[in-house]
């Protein structure tokens, strides 16, 4: 099964490219202290807003900090936000979806109405409103993005559970007296993992996009912590004099999100070739 999966995945060149991007980002963020040419926070007022040069390959920002170094450090922040936020969304979404799909009836009705209600809110409005009441910090951002992004996963897991729960292996488990918890976590959940994994990969991309938009607006990751989003704020403030501040961090976001999306779609196609669109 795993061998089959890898065989199919490897043939999809785009998916492999996506995987390469993701791996590269991990390596970059772990090696950041050693490979970034400057200290990400080192202010150098003698070289502010320098265009890209041999000394500063991607230029410097209004405080004279090296853009390349800040981008390398920003990679780690993006990964952290993406993974933690998605993790929270996965846990909430899976638990609610499993309960709705397995128990059905009023539990299902209640949870799915809750999903419908949550989907009425423009997600960005909900996130902003919550931030208005809390301090914007990287942890709050991760929790809020996760807590407002679980609805799709709930629907997915519920659908999987509904189609799985009448299958013979579940009926057999019930016949020998397995508890609900055992059936849900040992028998049903492993069979739903494939679609959860795909949703998680695509979810990381979405969370990184949301974080960068929030940080860009000044209500996400707060300076001086470097994030690709808040680096773009400096780009906007200096839009008529320093194009490099706008170009490079956004390019990093684009490539990262593209990487996760390609990886996610690749995993989906390799898990189940019938799902190929």
């Amino acid at each position: 099964m795993a061998g089959d999966f890898w065989q199919r995945f490897r043939k999809n060149r785009l998916a492999v490219a996506g995987l390469a991007v993701v791996v590269l980002l991990f390596v970059l963020s772990f090696l950041a202290p050693w490979i970034s040419p400057y200290d990400a926070g080192a202010i150098d007022l003698k070289s502010i807003l320098q265009p890209p040069s041999a000394k500063h390959p991607l230029g410097t920002d209004p405080l004279g900090r090296d853009v390349l170094s800040r981008m390398i450090w920003g990679a780690g922040i993006s990964l952290k936000v993406g993974f933690v936020a998605t993790g929270i969304a996965i846990v909430i979404g899976t638990l609610l979806g499993a309960a709705a799909g397995y128990y059905g009836r009023w539990v299902d009705a209640l949870i799915m109405r809750f999903v419908d209600i949550m989907l009425c809110f423009p997600t960005f409005f909900l996130i902003l409103a919550v931030i208005a009441f809390l301090e914007p910090s990287i942890w709050n951002i991760m929790i809020i993005i996760g807590a407002t992004g679980w609805m799709g996963i709930t629907r997915l897991v519920r659908a999987d559970f509904i189609s799985l729960k009448e299958r013979d292996f579940v009926l057999a488990a019930r016949a020998i007296g397995a508890s609900d918890a055992r059936i849900i976590f040992r028998h049903l959940l492993p069979n739903a993992m494939a679609s959860i994994l795909v949703a998680a990969t695509l979810g990381v991309a979405g969370a990184i996009l949301t974080e960068s938009a929030l940080s860009f607006l000044g209500i996400g990751v707060q300076p001086p912590t470097p994030s690709w989003g808040n680096m773009l704020t400096a780009g906007k403030d200096n839009i008529d004099i320093a194009w490099w501040l706008s170009l490079y961090p956004g390019l990093a976001i684009l490539v990262t999100v593209l990487g996760y999306n390609l990886l996610g779609e690749g995993i989906r196609d390799a898990l189940d070739p019938r799902l190929r669109r």
Binding site: G235, I239, L247, P249, G250
Partner: peptide
């Protein structure tokens, strides 16, 4: 379409403004 899904639109806005 695939690239369109991944582009941060606020960044595209900055580039087009420039």
């Amino acid at each position: 379409v695939f690239v369109g899904f991944a582009v941060p639109t606020f960044w595209l806005a900055l580039l087009l403004m420039i």
